[in-house]
Structure formats: C-alpha cells, structure tokens
Amino acid sequence: MENNNYAIETNDLSIHYGRFTAVKSVNMKVERQKITAIIGPSGCGKSTLLRAFNRMNDFVPGCFVTGELLLDKQNLYGKTIDPVEVRRKIGMVFQKPNPFPKSIYENIAWGARINGFKGKMDDLVEQSLRAAALWDEVKDKLQESAYALSGGQQQRLCIARTIAIQPEIILMDEPASALDPISTLRIEELMQELKKNYTIIIVTHNMQQAARASDYTAMMMIDDKRAGSVIEFDDTKTIFMRPSDKRTEDYVTGRFG
C-alpha cells in the first residue's frame, strides 16, 4: 500500500557547493498537515536543506543537488521540472519580514496575479489576510504601505502573501527570530491554524519554539568534514524528552551548540 501521508520525501538528498558537500544523504519523510521542525547548531546546514526543498539554492552559483526530493512521487529536481512551479507549490517565509514596497493589498495581489489568478482579487486578499490572522488589524488600511506595519504584522503579511498562491507546503526559516515574544506566540498560534490546510517545515534556533510548536523534529549536525546531516528524526516529544542520540540530548540540554 502506498502511504499518501507524506508531503515530501527525500532519498539520499545531498547538497553540494562545488566540491564541498554541505548537507549529506538526508532521508526524511515529512508528514502532511503537520509541523516539522529542523534544529541543530549554527552552520549545520538547516537553512541550506530548507532552501533545497523549494529549489532556492538554484540561485547560488556552484550549488547542486544529488539524490531525490519527491513531492507527490515526482522528483522536484527532475529535468522537466520548472523551478518556478516548485516555488508556487512550496512557499517560503524568511527570517526577516520582507514585504514588497507596495500597499498591503498589493503585497497579496501581486504574486497571485503573476501566477495567473483569475478569480475575485478582493476575496483572495481578504481570505489570505484572515488565514494569516491579520485581517482585523489591516482591513481599514489595505491601501497603506506594508512598511507601516509592525515587524510581527509584516511577517504575518508575508505568510498571507505565501498562502495567496495556495501552496501545498510552507517553509519557514526562523520566522520569529526577529520578533518580540508576543508576536512570536502569534506566529506559533498561526502555524497551528495553518497546519489544518498546509504542511509546514520550520527551521528554528529556538528549541522551546520547536518543542512548543512542532509535531516532528529533525536534528542536524555536522561531521568532521563539515557536512551536515540529519542525525535523528522523530516525533517532537521523543526528541525533547528521550532522544536516542547522545548528541541530540547534549544539544537540547544545552551542553553544546
């Protein structure tokens, strides 16, 4: 029987910069409509791996990938695959909120229009802002600049912008590290809402955040050749209460990292 519960699967996925292997042989099955966190010390390849999931590394000169990244059984690094289409299905939210220098409304509408959205734009903008728990705060100032919003609001706008394209998966690269604790909690609560419809993969340095917000956690480490790999992948409770790898235990208890 095929298990259709996985949004993304990787088979020996490795990421190289020229002759240097940055991330080695990742085998992960990311469950649909769950939140999967990637943790690990700085420089272990978390963000590199996350970026590989929607081919953002294509922009980095000399960067190439071996192995497979499967979305619905299709290798996203296959020759016939259009990376733009990949990024439509797999959206990304970055560490620093990066709204376009346009109105709140246009931040949502622009990407959708480029992607050929033909429906009622007003409805899409409202739905997306509601889904990102931002509607009530901005409904009376949709034509104002996105830059007028607070950092936390800007980040939720970026999430709304991602949702507007109707992706299957949302990648988040430290989405709350530039935000205050209240804004951070709002993002985490929003993630719990979003996972009803989307699969979320989040990179975080904040272990409490991974413990609070995620269903599964992948622990990454670098080896002596500085290649990062996933050393343990399990449900979040196990990773934080009873990890099987000593290095994971040492990391989550703050003995290194």
Binding site: M207, F240, M241, P243, T253
Partner: peptide, 9 residues
C-alpha cells in the same frame, strides 16, 4: 532554565 530531556526528568 526551561530544561529538556534528562534535565527535565
């Protein structure tokens, strides 16, 4: 300290 794993136990 928000302990984890063996520390929390």
């Amino acid at each position: 300290q928000q302990p984890m794993a063996q520390d929390l136990r």
